[in-house]
């Protein structure tokens, strides 16, 4: 039987860093470690399952209050430490089911905790840290926005267990008053509604899809494969603007984000007073 605490995110984090990512003062769900990558130090960050989570609505890889605020503090420390020197790459290892759904979370402002870590990733990117999201498992809804969305480059495993989406299928079916079968059918023609990672990749947001043998069990060869992909993405990020424009300039976007591109062209033209 698989141990739910030893999920893909944790396994890959540990395989890539040789560390559990536990840091004194951080919650047990937050993994942060420095490791060598392509001849330089890189900072790895991830959210792991935590059997001792303080908040009852977290512990299963959700992004909650602690993950947001402590994640922010850790990232801000990296930005500050590298302020006057070389900027270490930041690798966000993503396997997170969603944001946390609870009353305490809303009362304590989970929207702000999530915004804070987003701002930290965005500021790291604009400060010159290559931010690379490595999506090895689920990265759904608020988890995608909080952990992956601000990365210079997003790499996802090409695997049926990998899921990037606005909402899980059963909940989306209930809310849009459609059946799961209807949603599946729609996904065949409406690419942004599809649930498979291949369809997500068509939208042009990903830097690459990585086919990894036995993604549940990192091995020496696959760890090297993933490291090479990360090193390549870091170099690519360093040679490009520190914005997210690359997503809109991709071939995928040219095919599937014609609406976005039209908005950019027209708005740019209309912006300056005629």
């Amino acid at each position: 039987m698989t141990n739910p605490l030893n999920n893909r995110g944790r396994k890959w984090f540990e395989a890539l860093t040789g560390s559990t990512g536990k840091v004194d003062g951080n919650p047990g769900s937050l993994m942060v470690a420095e490791a060598n990558l392509g001849g330089e130090k890189a900072v790895f960050v991830g959210v792991a399952p935590d059997a001792n989570a303080r908040f009852p609505r977290t512990g299963h890889t959700e992004v909650g209050l602690e993950e947001g605020w402590y994640g922010t503090k850790n990232l801000r420390a990296v930005i500050e430490a590298d302020k006057n020197g070389p900027k270490r790459p930041i690798i966000t290892v993503c396997d997170s089911k969603s944001q946390a759904y609870g009353r305490r979370e809303e009362l304590f402002g989970i929207h702000l905790a999530a915004a804070a870590i987003i701002a930290a990733y965005a500021d790291a990117r604009t400060a010159g840290h290559p931010v690379i999201a490595l999506i090895v498992g689920r990265c759904v809804s608020g988890a995608f926005l909080a952990l992956a969305g601000q990365a210079n480059r997003m790499i996802a495993f090409d695997d049926p267990e990998v899921l990037i989406h606005a909402m899980y299928k059963d909940a989306a079916a209930r809310i849009t008053r459609r059946s799961v079968a209807e949603l599946d059918k729609l996904g065949e023609t409406i690419v942004p509604m599809a649930y498979d990672i291949g369809s997500f990749n068509k939208l042009g947001g990903l830097h690459s899809l990585l086919k990894v043998a036995n993604p549940d069990t990192p091995a020496k060869a696959t760890v090297e494969q993933v490291k090479s992909a990360l090193i390549e993405a870091i170099a690519d990020a360093r040679n490009s603007p520190r914005t997210l424009d690359v997503r809109l300039e991709s071939d995928g976007a040219k095919a599937f984000r014609k609406g976005s591109i039209k908005v950019r062209e027209l708005m740019t033209r209309q912006w300056a007073p005629s």
Binding site: A115, I118, A119, A122, R125, S141, F144, L145, G149, Q150, I164, H165, A166, M167, A172, I175, T176, I190, P192, M193, A194, S199, F200, L203, G205, T243, L244, R247, L248, R257, S260
Partner: peptide, 18 residues
């Protein structure tokens, strides 16, 4: 996010934040 445009919404929202 508009569920009828699900993942497009996720991508665009990330760009808004940026």
């Amino acid at each position: 996010v508009r569920l009828q445009e699900a993942n497009m919404g996720e991508l665009v929202i990330a760009e808004i934040y940026s």
